[in-house]
């Protein structure tokens, strides 16, 4: 950021090989490394939380149980009785995204959910799963959904393509939502942080005024904590909604 007079707010999203020579050889960038970190964190949280398996849970166990119950309730309430089958998938998605969003908030770390390639891969996985489940549970009647009930047959050439495009846009909107929220948040951090550096070059007056952007960044951090969990939640709940439509007969 301090490199030269220009400040590039998108630089933080660039991928570089890390971990020295090994990373160079494997073309290993920050993104997969932080994904592994996120997975390890979630697994460690659940393993360490549930290891005591006490009847009266301790703090960590209570937290792990609350997380489990939260997603389980969401999956079963939204999808229905079949929801229990999809619970592990939704749970994994939610905590992978949540961990990714939160790890990205740590200084010097990297937000892998700020890359559309990652979010689109996740959304595509949800989409393919929902199509497969639809075809399995509804058979060819699945395609009848593309014709709205009670519409005139003359409008079918117009309505069916629109419905199909609307259906195909689901993974795109799912991925863009998460990606855009993460990018926007981190760009804002960077912009306000760069204000501090710019103001610092104005001497004492600038130093005093630089408190403003720092305060805004503190507030933004609170906002980003909210956005991080909210976007993970929206991703998970929309997955549940798509799966409910898939299993509905």
């Amino acid at each position: 950021m301090a490199g030269g007079s220009s400040i590039n707010v998108l630089e933080q999203f660039e991928l570089h090989p890390i971990l020295g020579g090994l990373g160079d050889a494997l073309r290993l960038s920050q993104s997969p490394v932080y994904m592994v970190v996120a997975v390890c964190l979630v697994l460690a949280f659940l393993y360490l939380g549930m290891r005591p398996a006490a009847v009266v849970p301790g703090r960590l166990q209570a937290a792990a149980e609350v997380c489990y119950e939260f997603i389980h309730t969401m999956a079963v309430d939204t999808i229905g009785a079949e929801g229990a089958a999809f619970f592990p998938f939704v749970f994994t998605l939610f905590f992978f995204i949540l961990a990714g969003n939160y790890i990205g908030l740590l200084p010097f770390s990297f937000t892998f959910t700020s890359h559309i390639a990652v979010t689109f891969a996740l959304a595509l996985m949800v989409f393919v799963l929902s199509v497969v489940v639809s075809l399995k549970s509804q058979g060819l009647r699945f395609f009848a959904h593309f014709m709205p009930d009670g519409a005139s047959p003359f409008l079918a050439p117009l309505l069916i393509p629109i419905e199909i495009l609307s259906f195909l846009s689901r993974p795109v909107s799912l991925s863009i939502r998460l990606f855009a929220n993460m990018v926007a948040g981190h760009v804002m951090f960077d912009i306000f942080a760069s204000f501090v550096i710019m103001l610092a070059s104005f001497g004492v007056v600038g130093d005093v005024f630089a408190i403003g952007p720092i305060a805004i960044n503190v507030a933004l951090m609170a906002l980003e904590l909210l956005v991080g969990v909210l976007q993970a939640y929206v991703f998970a709940i929309l997955t549940c909604i798509y799966l409910r439509e898939a299993v509905a007969h």
Binding site: L165, S166, L168, S169, R170, V172, S173, I176, R177, A180, N181
Partner: peptide, 17 residues
């Protein structure tokens, strides 16, 4: 933001196809 995303994503899919 959500409405904009929905609109944009459908347009992206249409243009891509």
């Amino acid at each position: 933001l959500r409405a904009g995303t929905e609109m944009l994503s459908a347009l992206v899919v249409g243009v891509a196809i």
